[in-house]
Amino acid sequence: MKRNDIIKIAGISGYVLFLIVSLLLGFGPGEKIAHNSASFSAEMLKLLPGAFILIGLFEVWVKRETIERHFGEESGARGYLWAILLSGTTLGGLYVGFPVAYSLYSKGAKLSVIFTYIGAVAICRVPMTIFEASFLGVKFTAIRLLVSIPLVIVTSMLLGDYLTRRNYRIIAGK
């Protein structure tokens, strides 16, 4: 673990150093990468602090029983429905979905439901779906959703069952 951290820190410092030198010397590719980095970081700064504040509030205020009832073992089909509705309101994409899914899981949501949530975050975010339909047509978007949502649910159930059989536990930060 320790050695990995050192490699990571060295890698990140090397990258930053490369960008700084490139900017100073006007090295084209380095400048381009620096620009990509800045614009993607800005994109994430628009989302992550807000998302993590909401996650913090969720952890403090929402009772475990509530999540267990709606997203847990006894939730049945409702759990999947909630997961998909919740995903529709998630902004950003997978990288915002992962921490939210982890929070849901740590409050008692079942595995197949959180994987459904993650899959749905990828494909059913409302703003993105509207945007897609306006460029590729309603028919295209409708078919994509009708085909992918059931498959996301089925594959999430399979993955959930498989992991439950193997006594899988999520331990974040590893």
Binding site: I12, S37, V60
Partner: peptide, 26 residues
């Protein structure tokens, strides 16, 4: 407490996000 949890969770995952930013930019 919520703000503390938010900050801790964010710091915990920050290295992974940095790795992602580096990969995306390249």
């Amino acid at each position: 407490r919520a703000v503390k949890i938010a900050a801790r969770r964010f710091m915990m995952i920050l290295p992974a996000f940095l790795t992602m930013i580096i990969l995306v930019s390249i």
